[in-house]
Simulated assay, not measured.
Amino acid sequence: MKVGFIGTGSMGTVLIESFIRSGALQPSSVVASNRSQDKADRLAERYPGLTAARSNRQVVSSCGTVFLCVRPLSFKAVVDEIKPYVSPDQTIVSITSPVLLKHLESALPCKIAKVIPSITNNVLSGAVLCIFGDRMTEDDRHSLEWMLGMIGKPIRVSERHTRVTSDISSCGPAFLAYFVQKLVDAAVEVAGIPHDEATRLASEMVLGTGKLLNEGGFTPESLRRRVAVPGGIIEAGLELMERELDTTFVRLIQATHAKYDEDVEKVDHLFYGTIVE
């Protein structure tokens, strides 16, 4: 069975390349379309056998499962375009968090799922959040999770927790990378260490810390206690962070939620013409 991708931007490309690299899909099983045809054509050149479709209709007409990898405000136009060609036995998978299951189930007659990938899936690691519509059977869910399990760890979450779980698994890499960048910049400025050397050390630190939290039996709290000696250098640094960052992460989550709520309202308006409570 062929798997389709409508949209080959950043995350669409990550999914396609990760599925192929992991062996979950062969290039000959992939059909992809994009608003800019040259992007799909370049993927076909990179992965011989992959079909660069000339239309979204071609993708839907030839694939049992189709990933919609487009921006929230483009969803309604794409859904309207493909609706005449969607059948009840097909599965449409959204990777866009503000597009809710109810939006797609009200507009399409098929099985609906929402999957939130992460840039970490590019190295076949990290979580893949899974939210399933009522039309998905347990076999359907397991089948999709098997494929996603080749590029990360599928984790079922409630749709009402889409935003906060995405903050951690999908936005988290950017937030963590920002922290690492600032740590490196400060080390260069204060101590004069070469930037490349500081970056390499910080990158190895992040990798090792991830292994400790996933394989070493540590929680974030227990790891912090283990390395912070009372009255020591690490404790001095942690005390400063506690003072300076006291409400930063609460405000960070509040900011992402506010943007999410705004986007959901815009999508509601596109699908229903009015704001739905």
Rank of each mutant, 00 (worst) to 15 (best):
R243L: 14
A228D: 10
F249K: 10
E239M: 09
Q181V: 02
A77F: 00
M11V: 03
T209G: 14
N214V: 03
A174Y: 09
Y272R: 00
T13Q: 11
T13L: 05
S33H: 08
S169R: 09
L73Q: 13
T247F: 06
F179K: 13
V99C: 03
V31R: 02
F271I: 07
L213H: 04
Y178D: 13
F179E: 10
S106Q: 00
E242T: 15
D140I: 05
S28I: 05
T199Q: 04
S55I: 05
Q37H: 05
R21V: 03
S203E: 10
K266G: 07
A40K: 12
R226P: 06
L240E: 08
A198M: 09
M150N: 03
I234M: 08
V59I: 00
D263A: 06
V86K: 02
T162H: 08
G273L: 07
V184N: 15
E45W: 03
C69M: 08
L223W: 05
V70A: 12
I95R: 01
V123G: 04
C63H: 01
S125P: 05
V267D: 05
C171F: 13
I92D: 12
G217Q: 06
A52F: 06
A40N: 10
G133F: 00
R54C: 02
R141F: 01
V250P: 08
T120Q: 05
G273I: 07
S106V: 04
D268N: 15
T137F: 01
G273A: 00
L100S: 11
E197W: 02
S55A: 13
T120M: 10
P194Q: 05
E235T: 04
P220H: 10
L245Y: 03
T274G: 04
T248I: 09
V164T: 12
G64L: 00
S10H: 09
T8I: 02
D89T: 00
K182C: 15
S28D: 12
A127E: 13
I6H: 11
P84D: 10
F19T: 06
L124C: 11
A24Q: 01
M1S: 11
Y85H: 15
P84M: 09
R135G: 05
V206S: 14
H161Q: 15
T91Q: 14
N34K: 02
W146V: 03
L104W: 01
D268H: 02
E159K: 00
